[in-house]
């Protein structure tokens, strides 16, 4: 809507938009600020906004209590691993659904999504027992596996909506040009779908990084990611606001920063075919 509006109108819009944005962002800002406060000033009444004695002590303390780096590495491995597995499975599946659709394609997609509607708690015990039997409990591979399966329907759906926008004639041209199915997907489809794939990868990393149910219940120490790290601060350390804030900041910072920098790519593909 590139319509011309008056400067006052624009200033008013700007002010309201910024107010809304700052309200939504405030809890995060407050957490980050609190993480730099001495514990006593963190619960000061009235609250101190900026004029406190800035300190890094909370970060040092938190890191001494729990080895942050190990959790961080696990989070990275689980997020990237499940995304890579997911793509390998989903690209061919989405190709099939987008370019060789059948009457059942839509139903199949909806079925995939409905597998995500099952309440995870309902199958926690069986999965726990299965993982115990298979030796997958508290292993990185086990967590990668679970998160791949958790997010697979979403990846397939996103790629499917993306692939559907690519004209089939281009793939047919590749076929006429002598490309095998592998070359067709590798040299023609994938490069054309780069924006969509990028956005899918980003969303999947975010979802995997933040998945808290399976990661908390199926890991102990070896494969425990940052969700488990933060769960350890729920109580009684939760009462120490500054330390809680430092731990929270450490858990969310990596994904928050990645999200900020890749915001444009992420949003572009986040439409799930909602925009025609």
């Amino acid at each position: 809507m590139a319509r011309h509006i008056s400067t006052q109108r624009r200033a008013l819009n700007t002010a309201s938009a910024w107010t809304v944005a700052l309200i939504l962002f405030f809890p995060i800002l407050w957490t980050v600020l609190t993480s730099f406060k001495p514990e006593a000033q963190a619960v000061a009444s009235p609250p101190i906004f900026l004029g406190f004695d800035w300190t890094l002590q909370n970060y040092v303390d938190v890191n001494e209590q729990r080895d942050y780096f190990r959790y961080f590495v696990n989070s990275i491995i689980i997020a990237l691993g499940s995304t890579a597995f997911g793509l390998v499975l989903a690209v061919p599946a989405a190709w099939s659904m987008a370019f060789v659709p059948g009457r059942k394609t839509k139903d199949l997609l909806m079925w995939m999504l409905s597998t995500k509607m099952m309440p995870a708690v309902g199958v926690l015990v069986p999965i726990y027992l299965l993982f115990k039997t298979l030796g997958l409990l508290d292993t990185r591979f086990g967590m990668v596996l679970v998160l791949t399966l958790m997010n697979l329907p979403i990846i397939v759906w996103m790629l499917y909506t993306y692939f559907k926008e690519i004209p089939g004639e281009i793939l047919e041209a590749a076929r006429m040009d002598g490309a095998s199915l592998r070359s067709e997907i590798l040299y023609v489809l994938t490069p054309m779908a780069v924006p969509g794939i990028a956005s899918t990868v980003l969303l999947n990393i975010i979802l995997a990084w933040n998945e808290a149910f399976w990661t908390i219940n199926l890991t102990v120490t070896d494969a425990a990611p940052l969700t488990k790290f933060i769960a350890g601060f729920s109580s009684p350390q939760g009462l120490f606001y500054a330390k809680l804030s430092a731990a929270s900041t450490m858990a969310i910072a990596p994904i928050l920063i990645m999200g900020w920098f890749s915001q444009k790519q992420l949003v572009r593909g986040l439409t799930f075919g909602a925009v025609k």
Binding site: P167, E169, I170, E172, A173, A174, M176, D177, G178, S180
Partner: peptide, 17 residues
């Protein structure tokens, strides 16, 4: 298609963008 030794020009040109 690849084995037939034919070449095709499509309506939309189907160039690789």
């Amino acid at each position: 298609p690849a084995k037939r030794g034919l070449a095709m020009v499509f309506q939309s040109y189907a160039l690789y963008p």
